[in-house]
Amino acid sequence: MQNITLKVDGMSCGHCVNSVEGAVGKLGAKAKVDLAAGSVAIEYDEAKISLDAIKEAIEDQGYDVA
C-alpha cells in the first residue's frame, strides 16, 4: 500500500469533503480530507490504481491538485 498527501485547492466545506473522499473511494482507495490544511491523505494500492487516476478523480470534482 502507498500513502501520499496531496495539496488540493478549492475545498471549503463538508460537501467538498464528501465529493473528494467519495471520488477517491470509487477508485478503491481511502482518502481523508483535512480542510484546514487544504490537503488529502490517500492510501492506495499502486498495483491497482495510479496516482494520475486519483488526481484526475479529484480534479473531475472541480478541485485543483497542486
Rank of each mutant, 00 (worst) to 15 (best):
A53M: 06
Y44C: 04
E21H: 03
A36Y: 08
L6E: 08
L27A: 01
A31M: 11
A41T: 09
M11S: 01
E56H: 03
C16I: 11
E21N: 09
I54C: 14
I54A: 13
E59D: 09
A31V: 02
K32H: 10
M11T: 07
I49G: 03
Y63V: 11
S39T: 15
I49M: 05
A37L: 13
I42Y: 00
I4K: 15
H15P: 01
G38W: 02
H15Q: 11
K26W: 01
K26P: 01
A57S: 14
A36H: 07
G10K: 04
V8S: 05
V20E: 05
C13G: 06
L51K: 02
A36Q: 10
V20L: 04
E56P: 02
E59F: 01
E46I: 01
G62L: 12
T5M: 02
K30D: 10
D64I: 01
K32W: 04
N3C: 02
A53F: 01
L6D: 09
V40N: 14
I42N: 00
L51Y: 01
S39C: 04
K32F: 08
V24C: 05
I42F: 00
I49F: 04
M11D: 04
A66M: 10
D52S: 12
L27F: 03
G38T: 00
E56S: 09
I58Y: 04
T5F: 01
V24H: 03
V65A: 03
Q61A: 06
K32S: 04
D34S: 15
A36I: 07
V33I: 13
L51T: 00
S12L: 06
H15R: 02
E21C: 06
S12H: 15
D45V: 06
E56M: 02
Y44R: 01
K55A: 00
A31D: 10
H15T: 09
V8D: 04
N3S: 09
A29I: 11
S39I: 07
V33L: 07
A66Q: 12
V40F: 15
E43D: 13
K32A: 07
G38M: 03
I42G: 00
M11L: 07
V33S: 04
N18E: 14
D64R: 02
C16R: 05
S19H: 11
G25A: 14
K26T: 08
D34T: 10
E59W: 03
A31F: 11
G62R: 07
A41H: 12
G14I: 15
E56G: 02
H15A: 13
A66S: 09
Y44W: 06
G38P: 06
E46H: 06
K32D: 08
I42T: 01
V65M: 05
Q61C: 12
K32G: 01
K30Q: 13
S50F: 13
E46F: 06
A53C: 01
G38C: 04
A29Q: 12
M11F: 09
